[in-house]
Design a protein around this nucleic acid. Structure first.
Lengths: 129, 129
DNA sequence: TTATTGTACTATTTGTTATAGTACACTTAG
DNA sequence: CTAAGTGTACTATAACAAATAGTACAATAA
């Protein structure tokens, strides 16, 4: 079973979830350079979605420099992914920033946010143990 | 000119942006109980979008208890909006939480996040001056 | 009276997402 | 060599949400 998962009820498109999922797996080290990804067809079967959706995700990953694909061979993690992933982190930090601003506009106190932040941080630890 | 604005390039639907915008204005005190909202038609004209989109947003706001509408009169801020807005804050805090978790999975350090957080906080101050 | 208000419709358009199906050239395992 | 599996490239369609277009009605306010 692969490490890639998807939430059909989410508002974010499936192909985008896959893109993010693979990026995260690379960043955490679960996937390293030249590791093979599941084939388009097998991953489609496993996630019970259309192969075209997987292909779309893989295409995006390739144009982002995260993976490379060899016809008749498979798809693999790129050798140099750091730049692309740094960009991904910047994206997420930007999201965090605008969320913060909206919360502040809503009258949320700095302490309130800090509390939520620490809570999530600790909650994340629990899952990793 | 009204305080309500919209970003046509955003992925979040226009009607949802309007809903959030009004909620924020109430929370910050820019809109108080029984204040009149722009009429469906005038706001549509001002934002250069379809009246039906405004109506959809107003309907959602009404079912959320944020506003009330009187036929042939207009739409106005509700008297008791605290419960609904507390819920909105909870929503945003939950978003913040999952964003935090993803950043942590990406290997983002607690300090890195704290820095971004402080930066956004200060940036928000600047705009309000 | 006249203009403006919220409201309620139906129909249509647009864009994105996802599915369905086919086909081709290539590699690998047997 | 054969057969299965690979990425890739198509076209067509379905499904859905979002937004637009247009009309109509009853009530209010100037």
């Amino acid at each position: 079973m692969s490490l890639i998962y998807v939430d059909g009820r989410s508002r974010t498109p499936i192909y985008e979830q896959i893109v993010n999922c693979v990026k995260n797996l690379v960043y955490t080290g679960d996937l390293k350079a030249d590791d093979a990804l599941p084939s388009v067809r097998s991953l489609a079967a496993e996630l019970a979605i259309n192969p075209n959706t997987i292909q779309k995700a893989y295409n995006l990953l390739e144009s982002d420099g995260i993976i490379y694909s060899l016809p008749a061979r498979g798809s693999f993690i790129s050798g140099n992914t750091s730049a692309a992933l740094e960009a991904r982190k910047k994206e997420l930090l930007a999201e965090l920033g605008s969320l913060m601003k909206e919360l502040k506009r809503l009258g949320c106190s700095s302490d309130e946010i800090r509390t939520e932040m620490d809570l999530s941080w600790r909650d994340c630890d629990d899952k990793n143990e």
